[in-house]
């Protein structure tokens, strides 16, 4: 059993925050996100949101006392650690690396001292877990990223990052489900539809999911994109 510890602190008059320490990054992220999923539909809860190592539970003080909410959060974290491995089905994400789809691809190869082939093979050789979803609608943080690919965010974020863009930053790789501003260096783009407005779960990625990136060439990207429309 993994050992982690946390303390619960207030976040405003209607919220509690817990930040996990110890254990590894993936374990922390999956635990706080599993706890958030378990808490979301409880009576009096207005938001249960997790980051990569912290969770905030917000509640209506008129319906739940602060003490009861704190107990709820503590219990959810204690039980979440037991079943944090939820989804074993692998979501395949085809990615066209470099070129116009990965505008920072060459810069990164140079900075990391690796070839384009190496970058693609490091990024696509392993499976990742979706650590959390946040920042922008449907934006998925995945990890852990191989050490060879770890880099910093761009000094100046882009005002417009196209939907499907795949970026890397720190120990994580991220996928933009929708077009938005963003500061992660971009290495490629997927033609796969990551958002379907007509469903209850409109975003393809949810925390805990297992993902593998598959390299594709540009004609395949164009063909898959055309299939969607």
């Amino acid at each position: 059993m993994t050992v982690f510890s946390f303390s619960i602190e207030p976040y405003g008059e209607n919220g509690w925050i817990a930040t996990l320490s110890k254990s590894d990054m993936v374990e922390r992220a999956l635990t706080v996100n599993a706890a958030a999923d378990a808490l979301r539909d409880r009576p009096g809860v207005t938001d249960a949101v997790a980051g990569v190592e912290s969770i905030v539970l917000r509640f209506r003080p008129s319906e739940v006392t602060a003490e009861a909410a704190k107990t709820m959060l503590n219990d959810a974290l204690q039980t979440a650690k037991a079943h944090s491995a939820r989804s074993e089905a692998v979501i395949e994400i085809p990615v066209c690396y470099g070129g116009e789809y990965g505008p920072d691809f060459e810069m990164l190869c140079e900075k990391l001292g690796i070839s384009g082939e190496e970058l693609i093979s490091f990024h696509s050789a392993k499976t990742y877990r979706v650590l959390t979803v946040g920042f922008a609608p449907g934006f998925a943080y995945l990890g852990p990223l191989p050490d060879e690919l770890q880099t910093q965010r761009l000094a100046t974020p882009r005002a417009h990052v196209p939907a499907g863009s795949v970026g890397v930053a720190g120990a994580m790789t991220g996928v933009y489900a929708l077009a938005s501003p963003g500061g992660w260096p971009l290495i490629g783009r997927t033609p796969k539809c990551l958002f379907d407005a007509g469903t209850d779960e409109p975003f393809l990625f949810s925390s805990g999911a297992t993902v593998r990136f598959t390299p594709i060439d540009e004609p395949t990207y164009t063909a898959l994109k055309a299939e969607r429309s």
């Binding site: 999923d37 920042f135 449907g138 409109p202 975003f203 949810s206």
Partner: peptide, 10 residues
């Protein structure tokens, strides 16, 4: 859009 922050939705 209340209650959707876990999907990154403000």
């Amino acid at each position: 859009r209340p209650g959707l922050r876990h999907q990154g939705v403000p």
